[in-house]
């Protein structure tokens, strides 16, 4: 992000976010992120399959404890993310504009992203009441069904947005107790990397959200076939859709295929939380 200032600005290194740390790709690779007119604006890490595997390990390790946190606590943390994002608006604005947004577009997307986090923060202790059930079974048993996190969720972000696509998929996954391994938009990875810093400063435990930047074509198969990923949330079509859904069968991975315009207010809902929830039903006799 070159400017005309007198002093030479230092450039930010955009790194991966894995297990609460900011490593470069273990492969040492990176790629040039270009602006609309084709100029290079920054280097982003080109995550390898090994980085992805490491991120999945971190996500798995963090999942039980994250799901065991109280819903209230997860809501607080999501709200904290919103607060931190609000506080770092300037940087995100700058990055979005560098990646081709107009000021208006960037402002809109940033505000929507913050609002979306607030929206899902509020759901943390409410969706359960809406999607749970006490089932009146025809025997002397108390029977209830509650949502529970699926576990480790792979998230493949849509290509066209820098931030809102990412936030719209991460928030509903983690508010419900999942941990996730996110692959950002390949062409607009900067906000994703910076969002990792926001998460890091927001009391999100290490491993709950892991963010990779890099080549979707290279990583998609590992995502889909990895036996320790429980669900994949993605936007894809054509051959890549087929690859994802087909490889996912290796461990009966839940495939949540979402194509949406995330800037729209209606693209947030507790049904997105439920996409990465299982329903657990428990029976117990009623007697003395």
């Amino acid at each position: 992000m070159a400017t005309k200032a007198n002093r030479l600005e230092i450039l930010k290194t955009y790194k991966l976010y894995i297990d609460g740390k900011f490593p470069r790709s273990e492969s040492g690779r990176h790629y040039l992120v270009k602006s609309k007119n084709g100029n290079g604006i920054a280097n982003a890490c080109l995550a390898s399959r090994k980085d992805l595997r490491d991120a999945i390990v971190a996500a798995r390790k963090a999942q039980d404890a994250w799901a065991a946190r109280s819903a209230y606590n997860r809501g607080q943390i999501l709200y904290r993310i919103a607060e931190m994002l609000e506080g770092r608006k300037a940087q995100f604005m700058e990055e979005m504009i560098a990646q081709g947004y107009t000021v208006g577009q960037a402002t809109n997307e940033l505000q929507s992203s913050i609002d979306r986090l607030v929206h899902y923060a509020g759901w943390s202790d409410k969706y359960q009441a809406i999607f749970s059930a006490v089932n009146p079974v025809d025997s002397s048993h108390f029977n209830f069904s509650v949502p529970e996190a699926m576990g480790v969720v792979g998230i493949l972000c849509e290509e066209k947005s820098a931030l809102i696509g990412l936030v719209s998929l991460i928030a509903p996954a983690i508010v419900g107790g999942n941990t996730c391994v996110v692959l950002s938009s390949e062409s607009k990875p900067l906000c994703a990397s910076t969002f990792g810093e926001v998460l890091h400063a927001s009391d999100v435990p290490a491993g709950v959200v892991n963010i990779l930047t890099g080549s979707r074509a290279e990583l998609i198969k590992t995502y889909a076939s990895h036996m320790d990923v429980n669900a994949l949330v993605f936007d894809a079509s054509g051959e890549s859709l087929k690859t994802i859904q087909s490889e996912a069968a290796a461990n009966v991975k839940r495939c949540i295929h979402l194509m949406d315009d995330w800037s729209q207010a209606k693209s947030q809902s507790p049904y997105h939380i439920m996409n990465t929830q299982e329903i657990k039903t428990t029976w117990h006799p009623i007697g003395v």
């Binding site: 002397s140 048993h141 006799p285 009623i286 007697g287 003395v288």
Partner: peptide, 8 residues
């Protein structure tokens, strides 16, 4: 003793 189990 579980009453429901006994009844079943």
């Amino acid at each position: 003793v579980d009453q429901v189990g006994v009844e079943e």
